[in-house]
């Protein structure tokens, strides 16, 4: 056992990288659920985003074009969910599960010729002075732009939900769709936009795994991050900043336990591997003890005639 092999600066820097896919997927799903829709297809949209982004950046050589297409890919898959649940009025739980299974299947089909290829590297930002600072530089100012985009997105979602007119309408639709309809708001349109946004975010999160975190393509490489994102939204009590805390906590413990494994700590690997899940859930359960307030119309089917 050699704990001195663990470098705390690198550890913190890499936890932010580990947390970003989860954060992106969770913030998208948070908006979807605030609009009253439960989309269990996050995992499927992530993996489709992962392969879309990977394939496009390999073909074009541009990782940013890859990320853009990953967002589009996730959104296109979520369009299927829109058609099923908003127009065909199908059950949201079943449709979401189907979306995940479909996404896993189609992604492995799309990715057959991309196994074992290395994607083009995404550059890191380099700010003069700031990035050169000892300790603080590597932790905060030497990452890829997508990571900062993720944090900015959390702030943007928070502002949008709390202070903007559109955010108010979105919350109203998620709270009581019949009343929102009676007031003349387009429930289906608002929900469709929210679902597409959620799909795009999940796609980005997936591409972050295949282009930056791992960077390579293997089947099923999102490995349950989408499900963690779903749980994170609930335990974060549908609050954007709590989702950020939860994602970083999860990322941090994931990175720490990997380091501990590498350092040969005398704890069975299985316990270490389960620790991120356990601790994240535990902390968020304690956090959400105040007043966990699910959107009242969450998962309910809306039809204008009722």
């Amino acid at each position: 056992m050699d704990l001195s092999a663990i470098n705390p600066v690198l550890l913190i820097a890499s936890l932010m990288v580990a947390a970003t896919p989860l954060l992106l997927a969770a913030i998208g799903e948070l908006v979807v659920e605030k609009a009253g829709v439960l989309n269990l297809g996050v995992e499927g949209m992530m993996i489709v985003g992962a392969i879309s982004g990977f394939a496009i950046s390999v073909e074009t050589g541009s990782p940013y074009l890859g990320f853009l297409c990953a967002a589009i890919g996730g959104a296109v898959l979520s369009l299927l969910f829109v058609i099923l649940t908003q127009y065909a009025l199908a059950n949201q739980v079943a449709s979401g599960l189907a979306l995940t299974l479909f996404g896993l299947g189609i992604s492995s089909l799309m990715g057959q010729s991309y196994v074992g290829i290395k994607p083009p590297a995404t550059g890191e930002i380099w700010l003069p002075i700031l990035s050169d600072l000892p300790v603080i530089g590597p932790i905060f100012f030497q990452h890829d732009p997508i990571l900062y985009f993720g944090i900015a997105l959390v702030a943007a979602v928070w502002v949008l939900l709390k202070y903007s007119r559109f955010g108010l309408i979105l919350r109203a639709v998620g709270e009581n769709h019949d009343a929102a309809h009676a007031l003349g708001y387009k429930v289906v349109r608002v929900r469709t936009l929210a679902i597409l946004f959620g799909g795009a975010c999940a796609g980005l999160g997936g591409a972050y795994i295949s282009l930056i975190r791992v960077p390579q393509w293997t089947e099923g490489m999102t490995a349950g991050v989408g499900w963690i994102a779903l749980a994170l939204v609930v335990f974060a009590s549908w609050k954007p900043w709590r989702a950020l805390i939860g994602a970083y906590l999860f990322g941090g413990i994931t990175v720490l336990q990997l380091n501990l494994q590498a350092a040969g700590v005398a704890i069975p690997v299985e316990y270490l591997a389960m620790s991120p899940y356990l601790i994240t859930i535990l902390v968020l359960v304690i956090l959400s003890a105040d007043k966990s307030s699910a959107p009242a119309a969450l998962g309910r089917i809306f039809h204008a005639s009722n």
């Binding site: 919350r171 009343a179 929102a180």
Partner: peptide, 15 residues
Amino acid sequence: FSLFDALSVAENIAL
């Protein structure tokens, strides 16, 4: 009532 329970009085009226 076409009100939203989780929102404040002012938010409900704004809607």
